[in-house]
Design a protein around this nucleic acid. Structure first.
Lengths: 211, 211
DNA sequence: TTCAATAAGTGCAACAGCTCAACTTTTGAA
DNA sequence: TTCAAAAGTTGAGCTGTTGCACTTATTGAA
């Protein structure tokens, strides 16, 4: 998910704990690096900007940069844990009567890159950057897949199946893969919908063995 | 898929065309590189062996090595096109009355890493190498995913759906992802079976709109 | 047989991403 | 005030990978 601004800001973080000077400085450094990186990436393209250059622009050493971001791709994606929360919430707090796959479909359509370009140009440009850069696409995909386990657990709880039922893992994994499967289609949105149809029918047939 | 021998061999290739000296030498060089690489990898682990060392062992320059194999991971996996053929054949030549997902499940169970350690220790050791090395796991996965398009087309032909029906893409993609979804389970075999159950029910419900 | 075109291979330098070890500064608290 | 941990720096260096200029070997045709 994109960061809200590109300008150098010392954004307060949503945690209410009043962090000390130390933490604030650390956050500021991190932010400066991320801002510099995003600006350069948008200007010239991801592959055209090197780590050393970003470090220079943020006025830190490359070593420091890598202490804040484990790999180059991570400079682009922040807030991974927030995403996981939203994903799980989409399942847990879905409307009455909505199936789990249906909730996941909705979440996929509104969140992940499927969002129609509504207003926010910054977001649109950011999205385009990711879409155009294979390394970033791959990384984004892996990011989502990292949440498979948590999602599978949530699915198990919601459905009453055993926590380690392979069916839950399979649904979780496939649901997170769906946008990628749809990526190369003429109409990705439609492709996502159909992919979830597949999952929904299968799930409904299998998740209530009692019926 | 593993290569049959580790010893340096100038294996004849199954193509009947009597290749000239040039092509033969090229193939021999390639084989020497791959053999050296595999031997070293098995001895000391993938990450512990560098490109320069492999090139030395095969007595070629690193430049030459990269002319034969585009990336380090490719040193381990050969015969990618053969795999694709077998995958497509599994769908096209499935027994009468067997559904497409069922055929894919069977193929997944008998081929990819699911094979019980039956006899061939070389294969077992090779499989273990891949399983233990994240970079190789990822690469193997990408390899399979590269066949999504071809598989989707085969599925479309066999089912009578439109060639670009998203349902075919989705099934193809999910079927190729299934082993990975199952990877971390206590009983991966069982997990693969259940994952394909999900796909099979969904597919059967959706692939015959006329019924 | 000769010869030019082509492909394979070489050597080396360089770049990009990333890590390591040793060292300095800042900071929070005792 | 003191002191250990955390944050940051420096600089060297490793690894995968590429570009470039160059040498050979093989081949198909003249």
């Amino acid at each position: 998910m994109p960061r809200p601004t590109t300008g150098t800001t010392t954004d307060s973080i949503s945690t209410s704990a009043p962090m000390g000077r130390r933490e604030r400085k650390k956050a500021a450094t991190r932010q400066a690096i991320a801002d510099a990186a995003l600006r350069l990436f948008l200007e010239r393209g991801y592959d055209e900007v090197g780590i050393r250059e970003i470090a220079d622009a943020a006025d830190v050493s490359t070593t420091t940069l890598f202490k804040h971001f484990p790999v180059k791709e991570a400079l682009v994606f922040d807030e991974e844990s927030d995403q996981e929360s939203r994903l799980l919430a989409a399942v847990r707090e879905r409307p009455e009567g909505q199936s789990i796959p249906a909730a996941l479909r909705e979440h996929a359509l509104t969140t992940r890159r499927m969002a129609a370009t509504d207003g926010d140009t910054t977001l649109a440009v950011f999205t385009e950057l990711v879409a155009r850069t294979p390394a970033l696409r791959d990384y984004a995909q892996k990011m989502w897949l990292r949440h498979t386990t948590a999602l599978a657990r949530a699915i198990a709880e919601e459905s009453g199946l055993a926590a380690d039922d392979p069916l839950c893992t399979a649904l979780a994994h496939f649901a997170l893969e769906a946008p990628r499967a749809a990526y190369s289609h003429a109409d990705p949105r439609e492709a996502v919908i159909r992919a979830f149809d597949l999952l929904e029918y299968g799930w409904n047939a299998l998740s209530r063995p009692a019926l």
